[in-house]
Design a protein around this nucleic acid. Structure first.
Lengths: 166, 166
DNA sequence: AAGGATGCGCAATATTCTTTCGCGCTTGAG
DNA sequence: CTCAAGCGCGAAAGAATATTGCGCATCCTT
């Protein structure tokens, strides 16, 4: 099912559910222009094919008490695959680390972190991240304010691209 | 309603919906330990209070044809508030830019971008970002691989913190 | 202690979801 | 070119869910 090419309706479904993941199936069907049963079948297929990984409520982190957001650039001493995997595994176990991406260039990883306040982040930084074996350098940057935070991908770009090919 | 403190049930609701945003209300009610009607009322209240910003399907970007993910660190010539706002507004209009955060330190902004392939990103980089007025420097880092990508906030940290206070 | 406000649960109604069925279209073999 | 098989669609019925109104308990205030 991986190689299955999506048609326009599938892409519309994905776009709609990315914008509003709690939309009812009948509403979704109406928007993509088919009736409810085949629409639901398509959604199930997309889920099983892994094109839809899950559904999440977007919560207001600040109101919930997570006032601090930090990007951390991490450099390691050894970039051996085993060491890379070990560091990634540690990241998965740190709840304050929400994202961990391996990068090219001088920095090995970028981490997006959240924390209730500065002191709890610094506690994590000095008590956990900096004391981790193989961590050579960490440069942190506090987020002053967020200007844009869109989840997912831009479907308009995809449609535009496909229309050029067709 | 902003100053309203959430009780444990509200936090459970948020945690559950963050993990599975399409859960039915009866299932949610069962999990948080109350009956369906008050559960739905709480969800509506949380939505109206802005604690739930929305619901989104998490789509598989790579399978959809967005194979490239890039972090871009942007420095501006002028950091006057008007200029900062102007740059943020441009970011909001670039579909390939999914996130834009203003940082402290030497870099002014960090951008998380996606693109179908390297050439379309470079087209954006050289044709759009680098030619934008007031942009002094851009350093880009390609994401080699993603190790962790959790949406939202860690509710366990929140609960732990609250239990210490109580 | 009385009054008011808040929030729960129960029950009834309306909406939505799920399943089954038959139809029409495309596809590939004869 | 014809025909049969496979696939996806739409309609309808039964099941599950969402939604509303109401009575009652609890808590806080006075």
């Amino acid at each position: 099912m991986v190689a299955t090419r999506l048609d326009e309706i599938d892409r519309k479904i994905l776009a709609e559910l990315q914008a509003d993941g709690r939309m009812t199936n009948v509403e979704l069907a109406k928007r993509v222009g088919i009736s409810a049963p085949p629409c639901l079948r398509r959604v199930r297929t997309l889920e099983e094919a892994g094109l839809i990984r899950g559904y999440h409520a977007e919560v207001n982190a600040r109101e919930l008490g997570f006032e601090v957001q930090v990007f951390a650039m991490v450099g390691l001493d050894s970039q051996a695959e085993v060491e890379l995997r070990a560091f990634e595994e540690r990241c998965r176990n740190w709840p304050l680390v929400r994202e961990c991406h391996m990068l090219n260039g001088e920095v090995d990883f970028i981490l997006k972190c959240v924390a209730p306040d500065l002191s709890s982040f610094q506690q994590f930084l000095t008590g956990e991240l900096l004391t981790t074996p193989n961590v050579a350098s960490v440069k942190t940057s506090l987020v002053i304010r967020g200007a844009k935070d869109e989840p997912g991908v831009p479907f308009d770009v995809l449609e535009e691209r496909l229309s050029r090919t067709a």
